[in-house]
Design a protein around this nucleic acid. Structure first.
Lengths: 349, 349
DNA sequence: AGCAATTGATAAAACGTTTAAAATATCAGG
DNA sequence: CCTGATATTTTAAACGTTTTATCAATTGCT
């Protein structure tokens, strides 16, 4: 474990001062052709690499963001949606020399509600991934640290980016209406969540736009266990019961819009198991375009979210915020598109 | 964004030197009762938190490890197995004040085969997660940086921890033999992978131990697309064909041991689809105890790996390596247990 | 040639800590 | 009251950079 050469060693072997070496390395100041060449030679020979810690101390930035998961690493990691988001986020950040420091909220905050690495200045800002309670978001907001809500939003002026669930609602209803559907019902979790609300609003506006009947009864919601999305527990049961109830009536819906693919796929499985044919008896539309959506039989018509792009744009948002604090707050909605597969029936024929 | 108070400010308001403040904060040296009390008061009043960057520069450690994914973040994140491992790893590290810096191999290494944050001293060591090509592992090994192979192993003296696939093989075969099975076949990917080899060796030793016939024909392997585990592509097809071929013969196996749950579950689905009853006609055993294993019908008998523990112990390994470099290399196997569910038939009745 | 402007290089300070060594204060024993 | 021992505190260096201000050398212009 030979100790790495410092900038002093480079300067010594180049017969110049460390300031000149630094200038060459950072393309600043003015340095003569010969000196520059000599220095670069020595750098190459020694395999010199700048020491980030010294650098960070001086420039008062760490070029690192904290990535915080709620409630824990495992809960977030298990969701394949976030895997892609992470990929886009990480790729874009490393492209500009930034890094990600990782933590689950529950483990990183024993004394203070704020993770230790933020308090101790190891990061330049925080990226929040997951369904954080708004009290927690507030704590960060008050601290005035660069902050990004990724795939989430909140009423206060905090940078955020979500997929455009509103536009999705319009697109879905238009698609269904075009296929002759007139009685459409949506299904969503009862949780307080910006994305859910957005998608419901889009759905209801879509109904209005297409001149279809719609009221609070058009959305099936059930208070579930307020746990991770991966746990398809009692709330799915309850929602399915409501759906079946609805299907019995004389004005049974012909199409179901699920708030995400996990829910949609589970419902399709339950329907098929009960002998209700999809899409012939009930069409189903999802949201997210998870990998499983294609493998479902019938393949799921759903809303495609460019998850990597979500991460990529998120990265740019927080970079901007961290480097130019005066930038006005951005609340972005990433455009989405409907991808048509086999789970929607055409009623016009 | 008021600038945070430094140790100087604390010292000034406590009428003492920064050395004394530092001593109090780190419980070193000898400080009088009164001074200590006064200093702690000021610290509390100012909300002072040590600046990690300054500290890290001085102590020449960052108290951070790099967590490297291969090939990319998304590929690893998508695997729920790693989600739990990560959880255990992160929890244990934060418990002792350490952190994780994150990167996908493909994105973090554009010029050099070594990620930038390691070269620039942002981390004290590297944790490798995923099926890294051994050439890459070699590069790290030669660099003599603290290194941990998590859920992987290699011939060189590098700390590593895997689940005990060998013991698993013995347990599985014993379990099957106890239930009256005598013709057992295993199925695994063709990839070069330590875990796969270990599990196969355990399986073959198990056959021997139980006095059952076994040779190279007892293991169905197929060269698949050398891609992520989540992609159940052509290799599954080929392996299933081989299996069906084997089932036709007069000496058809009565039990199948799959190298992991993903493979096991996919095979069960294919078998059921073809009208072959599980476990009546063919018993199936998996490995990993993924979440899906319980939901399968029939529920999958498999090997339970304590994934969080895998991460936890891994954390301790690399901590030890980083703080006491002379420690002899550890190659650990985490004990596993067979969990009996419904996918193995009892042939004795 | 003399003066101003430009270019090239450097010294030194600063970033926020920890820690070894030095300095000072306190105390007990003769 | 002096001496040596011990307890407490401080000084100053070091960690590896970046950057400002300064200095020296070169060039352009009259």
């Amino acid at each position: 474990m030979a100790t790495r050469p410092s900038i002093f060693e480079v300067a010594r072997q180049s017969n110049c001062s460390i300031a000149t070496v630094s200038n060459v390395l950072n393309n600043k100041g003015r340095v003569s052709k010969e000196k520059r060449k000599k220095i670069l030679q020595v750098v190459a020979k020694l395999g010199y690499q700048v020491n980030s810690v010294g650098r960070n101390l001086r420039i008062r930035r760490t070029e690192t963001f904290g990535l915080l998961f709620y409630p824990s690493c495992a809960e977030i990691f298990k969701n394949p949606f976030y895997a892609e988001v992470m990929q886009g986020l990480e790729a874009q950040l490393t492209r500009v020399g930034y890094h990600l420091l990782l933590a689950g909220y529950e483990t990183s905050t024993t004394n203070s509600p704020i993770p230790n690495f933020l308090l101790s200045g190891k990061v330049d800002g925080m990226i929040l991934l997951g369904r954080f309670p708004s009290e927690i978001i507030q704590v960060f907001h008050e601290r005035k640290t660069p902050l990004l809500l990724l795939d989430a939003n909140v009423e206060w002026p905090v940078d955020s980016i979500v997929s455009d669930g509103f536009s999705a609602g319009l697109q879905i209803v238009k698609h269904l209406a075009d296929k002759g559907h007139r009685r459409i019902v949506m299904m969503a979790y009862e949780w307080e969540d910006y994305n859910i609300d957005l998608r419901i609003q889009g759905f209801l506006s879509g109904l209005q736009e297409q001149g279809l009947p719609g009221d609070e009864k058009s959305v099936i919601r059930h208070p579930g266990d307020d746990q991770s999305v991966t746990r398809q527990g009692t709330s799915h049961d309850a929602m399915y019961q409501s759906l079946k109830e609805r299907l019995k009536g004389p004005n049974a819906p012909t199409a179901l819009v699920a708030v995400n693919d996990t829910l949609a796929i589970d419902m399709v499985h339950r329907l098929l198991r009960d002998g209700i044919r999809v899409p012939e008896q009930l069409s189903v539309v999802g949201y997210d375009d998870d990998e499983m959506a294609q493998n479902l039989v019938p393949a799921l018509t759903t809303i495609r979210v460019n998850k990597q792009e979500l991460g990529r744009v998120g990265a740019e948002l927080i970079l901007k915020r961290a480097t130019q604090p005066k930038t006005p707050v951005s609340k972005l909605r990433l455009p989405v598109e409907l991808v048509e597969r086999g789970s929607v029936a055409d009623l016009r024929r």
